[in-house]
């Protein structure tokens, strides 16, 4: 019963790849947006804040549909990325990663923003008097001190990406070997007769992956907190 079929392995691999790529690719944007929201005053800040949080509140199928009509092969953004960046999103695993990244973005930004807000400005002032320009202050003081929050944000993003279903299936469908993740594979298996055993196997796998991710992140965050407290 615990023997996984090649199709199931494929779904697991796609899920992990989608979640990892979604997390890694959105991290720089997450840090930049979190920093801007935590530290800068700018016109339209409330609107940016709301826009970032929108995927948290919208039904996932709405986000998925909006992605479909803006990043499809005939849609403006989709055509732009295909022509100038060489990435096609529609009905590809990359599209699943995009959908997951957008759905998880609010969680990532929130965690990182909180850790930026918790940093004592006086430490940044001190490093400026020691000769560090704004970029160096950010790289050597702000970012290392925010590391626990950055790790928390990455874990939340990864976890959300692993579990994402609605927006992904709406945007890139459920194609075995390309866009079928663990979540959409389980969904398919529950729709066919005799799929229960296979569904249960994938359910166990997703529990194991989620659990492992949480344990590792807890350990990493602990270490980072200790470091930033200077003990």
């Amino acid at each position: 019963m615990l023997e996984l079929t090649p199709e199931e392995w494929t779904a697991i691999r796609i899920s992990l790849r989608v979640a990892l790529v979604a997390t890694a690719a959105s991290l720089p944007f997450g840090i930049a947006v979190a920093y801007a929201l935590a530290r800068r005053q700018f016109w339209g800040k409330a609107a940016v804040d709301a826009l970032v949080h929108l995927p948290l509140v919208l039904p996932p199928v709405v986000t998925g549909y909006l992605l479909l009509i803006s990043f499809g092969r005939k849609a403006p953004l989709g055509m732009f990325f295909e022509k100038y960046v060489g990435i096609v999103f529609s009905f590809r695993w990359t599209g699943a990663a995009l959908a997951c990244a957008i759905m998880a973005f609010p969680l990532m930004v929130r965690a990182i923003r909180l850790s930026f807000e918790a940093i004592d400005h006086k430490l940044e002032d001190a490093s400026a008097t020691l000769g560090a320009g704004p970029l160096w202050v950010f790289l050597t003081v702000t970012l290392p001190l925010a590391l626990p929050g950055v790790i928390a944000g990455m874990v939340l993003c990864f976890a959300k990406a692993l579990g994402e279903f609605g927006a992904t299936i709406t945007f890139v469908s459920n194609i075995p070997g390309e866009t079928q993740t663990i979540a959409s594979a389980i969904y398919t298996l529950t729709q066919v007769p005799n799929g229960d055993a296979a569904a249960m196997r994938l359910v166990l796998v997703s529990i194991v992956i989620s659990f492992a991710a949480l344990v590792v992140s807890g350990w990493l965050a602990n270490r980072a907190v200790q470091r930033s407290h200077g003990d």
């Binding site: 320009g133 001190l145 930033s228």
Partner: peptide, 20 residues
């Protein structure tokens, strides 16, 4: 002139060592 180009050493009341 921004603080990082002033080359002025500053010892604060509370030390402000970089904790990490």
């Amino acid at each position: 002139v921004p603080p990082h180009r002033r080359r002025i050493g500053y010892v604060f009341q509370e030390g402000r060592l970089l904790p990490h």
